[in-house]
Amino acid sequence: MNLLKLSRVDAGFSLESAAKKLRISAGYLSQIENKQRQVSSERANEISHLYKKNVNDLFVPIRYAIREVDENMN
């Protein structure tokens, strides 16, 4: 069982009840749990809050901004 699913179960939620609280489908939450979908920082915060966990304990930030190039550098 992965950490996200374990956290949901530990918080006392079924897949369906957690999805309902998050206002998403159970299928979508299942995809998140099975690493088939990435989530926004807002959604990660909502899930973490519902499960009473720190967002950094459940999710790893993987998005990067593109670095600006200094045109004076050759």
Rank of each mutant, 00 (worst) to 15 (best):
M1C: 01
M1H: 06
M1V: 00
M1D: 00
N2K: 06
N2S: 08
N2W: 02
L4H: 00
S7I: 08
D10T: 08
D10C: 09
A11S: 00
F13Q: 12
F13V: 15
S14Y: 10
S14I: 09
S14V: 11
E16H: 08
A18C: 10
A18Q: 09
A18Y: 11
A19M: 08
K21E: 05
L22N: 05
S25P: 03
S25T: 11
A26L: 00
A26R: 13
A26H: 02
Y28A: 12
L29F: 07
Q31V: 04
I32T: 13
E33P: 00
K35D: 14
Q36L: 08
Q36N: 15
Q36Y: 10
Q38P: 05
S40D: 05
S40K: 06
S41I: 12
E42K: 11
R43Q: 01
R43N: 03
E46F: 09
S48E: 11
L50D: 07
L50W: 12
Y51C: 10
Y51M: 12
Y51A: 10
K52N: 13
N54P: 03
N56Y: 04
D57W: 00
L58S: 10
I62N: 07
I62K: 06
R63H: 13
I66Y: 03
I66E: 02
I66L: 06
R67S: 14
E68Y: 00
V69C: 05
V69E: 04
N72Q: 13
N72S: 14
M73I: 12
N74E: 14
